[in-house]
Design a binder for these strands. Structure first.
Length: 897
RNA sequence: GGGCGUAUAGCUCAGCGGGAGAGCACUCGGUUUACACCCGAGCGGUCGCAGGUUCGAUCCCUGCUGCGCCCACCA
């Protein structure tokens, strides 16, 4: 992504409707009272509404559509904060920015929810019938759906509410239908009988992506098929499937069984005889080296069955009950049957061995959590080969960037190994498959503007499409595709997709495939920015069962939205998980308060943006220092934000605001404001105004509310939302004061001097507020004498009067030389404390001398190290020697205890 | 089973070839006229273990160990 400097566009200067600047602020920021009004003002002003007709360069991003059933959890809050931060950044850069909101119809999740309600009412979706059920779902949506949208307002998201979309909207349904028809006509959608992932609870097929593998405790049971010489022992974790066995397989090279291959063995409990076949898939090392083969209920066995032309015996109905085996087990649930079959075989003395518990991995339905059942079934599939290749190539050839780049490998792993995608679901809520079957077995795929075939015997396919089928179209279906809308031409491809690495496979790959296909090779986004998962303060995954889940709404209530947003972005390194805890949110609130108070101080002291900052020649060293630092921070933050380095950019801003602006500049400014001449006071007010104005702009994408409130008070501008981003803008670069190394060194010396004096005072047990008479001098002090008043003020020293006799003295080594501080301590100094401190310093200096000596005595080092490094070490050694001398003479001068 | 990542202060993490850093926590001192949601000072680490490359390794390489994640059809 480019930075501001390269892509700056002028924003119109708006002054109408601008409130007058305030000179005073309330004592504290109360987010709960102000946020909603500020948000409403933004919406009313239309700041978030993108204009497709604008000639500014576009920026667009679509929300990863949350489930209509969902409410805002911490993961959303995180993702949405990042998206909103990027969007606000681009909007301030002057780009025509669209952040498009919406929701996903979440087929399976909605079924689960509404069916649960129906159960509570003593009915079911099948009793209700398809039409009534779907009606019922729409009612549910109207009443309870989309809670999350209101919560997004709470989070301050600058989304374009005029463009809100839902995957079941008319327009989006049309997009789904259009692309289905096109894929069908291109031969990329087909119907086939396959062994699929079946969820008995949903009574529907699931795609591979909707199946999670979990380690579970089962049992591995070995049992004997047949008797006498022809007997063979096989092992299984799923006893009940033996009812559907149609063969036993052994490895072709396995000599133990060579004599049995080609023979038949009697399958217990059924009376059927099944063949023993040789297949190289079998691992002779595992178990007995003989495998029971159930082609209709196991993917491996299915393949073995195909190779050996074995019959497929389906032994379960769609609810997972044993069915059609003609045994006593018919009608039993699969788990019930598992036990029953085992016990029956035990009675017959066929159980040879049992291993319990036996840990193995079993596929579970992601939604309903029950173990999936492989099942032979007629379903619709997308032939992903050509689509996946295009999706891979788009990243390979750089048309789409993956951020962080390491994640691209994972992306390739997926697109290169994708199996055909099962898209039909035996559900009712969703986009119904637009295929009609005729009385003579005709199959017609009906396009969006076509009439379905009429007449006797024509019926539409009962199934709906996988939810991810419509989500895959999201980046262009939401912009009006298949119509050629202004939105589509202005905002497609979207600039960036921000999402978690956990759905790279699920969703991102699908959008890539669909986008490239539907939009003639134009990818759906230029950059894929992947973020991590939110975790608790110990890095543990958050979950309800672990009890470490958190409610972002509660935190926003308690600490303010900005505090939550700032905490989330502070932890957001690209692709890395984010730990969060309430303590840290509290810390972020402190930062907002600090910012508030700094601005309040500035306003109380007449800070203004009305007067431009004068040139460097008229400014004090402190002014030039803070302005130089400000310029550096502007560039830093701009680069980091353009590169999705959220954590680094907030860290830069935090450190600058707190540790430089507040801790040092504001203190130095007090001296200028209270003791300076009129000119200095005016200049200081302008510098304060400018620095805060800039910092508030930089912080606005992260913490929009408090910055808006403060900026309006400070500048009287219309709104930060549409204010200019400082980097790259002429308004800011023209008068920019570059960092000056001499000035920086001077201020660094002031800081060191102040810190050393404070340390001395602290060691001596002086109360921080107690004023002490002192004489400052020495060659080093001469250099910083311009800041003498500031130093005295910062460490509570008063000017020594004539005839002053120091009780203690202190030497501070500065970059420009040594400064001496002589203090009247109104009595003897604490010799013990002082000696302790000096000894400690001496130890540090001696260690330094030893280390540098070792380096400088090393010939290899002198020969091969770069000159500047050697110089640095020499300087360090000299400084250490000087320190040792100084400390020793101080020690000698101390009165003995 | 395959792949990826990670190991730095009590906690969460930056740094990634030449002097160990931040925030929080902790200790001490503070009602300094923006801020106790604050200010100042301080304590705290042989940078997972073992080798190697280098004048020099927390940083690069190899191995080991721990942790995390993703993928996977071990009956």
């Amino acid at each position: 992504m480019t930075t501001a400097g390269e892509r700056f566009v002028d924003l119109p200067v708006v002054t109408e409707n601008a409130p007058a600047p305030q000179t005073d602020l309330p004592g504290s920021w109360t987010p709960a009272d102000e946020e909603s009004a500020i948000y409403q003002r933004w919406v009313d002003a239309g700041y978030f509404t993108a204009d497709a007709g604008s000639d500014r360069p576009p920026f667009s991003v679509v929300i990863p559509p949350p489930n209509v059933t969902g409410s805002l959890h911490i993961g959303h809050a995180f993702e949405h904060t990042l998206i909103d931060t990027i969007t606000r950044y681009h909007r301030m850069l002057g780009e025509e920015s669209l952040y498009l909101p919406g929701m996903d119809h979440a087929s399976i999740a909605v079924h689960a929810l509404v069916e649960k309600q129906l159960r509570a009412e003593g009915t079911s979706r099948r009793e209700l019938g398809r039409e009534k059920f779907v009606e019922r779902v729409w009612e549910w949506k109207a009443e309870h759906g989309g809670q999350i949208l209101a919560q997004m307002k709470r989070l301050g998201e600058s989304v374009d509410w005029t463009r809100e979309r839902f995957t079941m909207d008319e327009g989006l349904s049309k997009a789904v239908n259009t692309i289905f028809k096109r894929l069908y006509d291109d031969g990329l959608i087909y119907r086939a009988e396959r062994l699929v992932n079946w969820s008995p609870e949903l009574r529907s097929v699931l795609s591979d992506a909707e199946v999670d593998h979990e380690e579970v405790e089962g049992e591995l049971v070995s049992m004997r098929y047949g008797d006498g010489d022809g007997a063979i022992v096989v092992a299984t974790t799923r006893m009940e499937t033996m009812l559907g066995d149609t063969a036993v397989a052994v490895h072709p090279d396995d000599e133990r069984y060579a004599h049995l291959v080609g023979t038949e063995v009697e399958l217990p409990l059924t009376g059927r005889r099944i063949p023993i076949v040789a297949d190289s898939h079998v691992d002779p090392e595992f178990g007995t080296g003989a495998v029971k083969v159930t082609p209709a209920h196991d993917p491996n066995d299915f393949e073995i069955g195909q190779r050996h032309d074995l019959p497929m015996r389906t032994i379960m109905d769609e609810t997972g009950r044993i069915d059609g085996t003609g045994t006593e087990f018919d009608g039993m649930d699969r788990f019930e049957a598992r036990v029953a079959v085992r016990e029956k075989l035990r009675e017959q003395g066929r159980i040879v061995a049992e291993k319990r518990p036996y840990l193995h991995s079993v596929g579970h339905s992601q939604r309903s959590k029950e173990p999936i059942e492989p099942r032979l079934s007629l379903q619709w599939f997308v032939k992903v080969g050509p689509l996946a290749k295009a999706a891979g190539d788009a990243v390979r050839d750089g048309r789409v960037a993956v951020h962080p780049p390491e994640m691209a490998k994972r992306y390739f792993d997926w697109v290169d190994n994708l199996h055909d995608w099962c898209i039909s679901r035996q559900l009712w809520w969703g986009h119904r498959i637009p295929v009609w079957y005729g009385p003579e077995g005709e199959v017609v795929c009906v396009g969006p503007d076509e009439e379905p075939p009429s007449g006797e015997g024509w019926t539409q396919d009962e199934d709906v499409l996988d939810t991810w089928f419509s989500s895959g179209l999201w980046p262009f279906s939401t912009l009006g595709w298949p119509e050629k809308t202004p939105d589509l031409s202005k905002f497609y491809p979207t600039t960036v997709l921000v999402t978690g690495y956990d759905i790279l496979f699920f969703w991102v790959v699908r959008m890539m495939m669909m986008g490239l296909y539907a939009m003639d090779g134009e990818p759906p986004f230029r950059t894929i920015a992947l973020h991590g998962m939110v975790r608790d303060q110990f890095g543990k995954k958050m979950s309800k069962t672990a009890g470490n889940g958190v409610d972002p709404i509660e935190w926003m209530d308690r600490y303010g939205t900005d505090a939550l947003r700032f905490t989330l972005t502070r932890g957001a390194n690209p692709g890395v998980d984010v730990p969060i805890s309430e303590e840290w949110v509290n810390g972020s609130r402190s930062f907002c308060t600090k910012l508030w108070n700094a601005t309040r101080f500035a306003l109380m002291n007449g800070a203004t943006v009305a007067r431009p900052v004068p040139g460097a020649a008229e400014l004090t060293e402190a002014d030039r220092w803070i302005l130089g630092r400000l310029g550096a921070v502007v560039s830093e933050v701009d680069g980091q934000l353009a590169d999705f380095q959220f954590a680094k950019s907030t860290e830069s801003l935090y450190a600058f605001t707190w540790n430089e602006l507040c801790d040092w500049y504001l203190e130095l400014a007090k001296v200028q404001l209270y003791q300076g001449d009129e000119k200095t006071v005016e200049n200081t007010r302008a510098v304060l105004g400018h620095v805060l104005d800039t910092v508030l702009r930089l912080l606005h994408p992260f913490i929009p509310f408090v910055t808006e409130r403060l900026w309006l008070a400070l500048t009287g501008g219309e709104s930060l939302v549409v204010a200019q981003w400082p980097a790259g803008s002429p308004q800011f670069t023209e008068h920019r004061i570059e960092a000056d190394p001499v000035v920086d060194a001077r201020i660094a010396d002031v800081q060191k001097l102040v810190t050393e004096i404070r340390r001395f005072r602290s060691d001596q047990g002086l109360k921080p507020s107690q004023k002490v008479a002192a004489r400052l001098g020495g060659p080093g002090f001469e250099e910083v004498s311009g800041q003498a008043d500031a130093v005295r003020s910062l460490v509570r020293l008063t000017e020594a009067e004539d005839g002053f006799t120091p009780g203690a003295s202190l030497e501070v080594v500065l970059g420009s030389g040594t400064a001496t501080v002589e203090l009247d301590l109104s009595g003897a100094i604490d010799v013990v404390a002082e000696r302790k401190r000096l000894r400690k310093d001496l130890g540090v200096a001696e260690k330094e001398l030893k280390q540098t000596d070792a380096k400088l005595g090393n010939e290899g080092f002198l020969a091969k190290a770069p000159e500047n490094v050697v110089e640095k070490i020499r300087a360090r050694r000299e400084a250490a020697v000087a320190d040792i001398d100084r400390i020793n003479s101080r020690l000698a001068a101390l009165p003995s205890a």
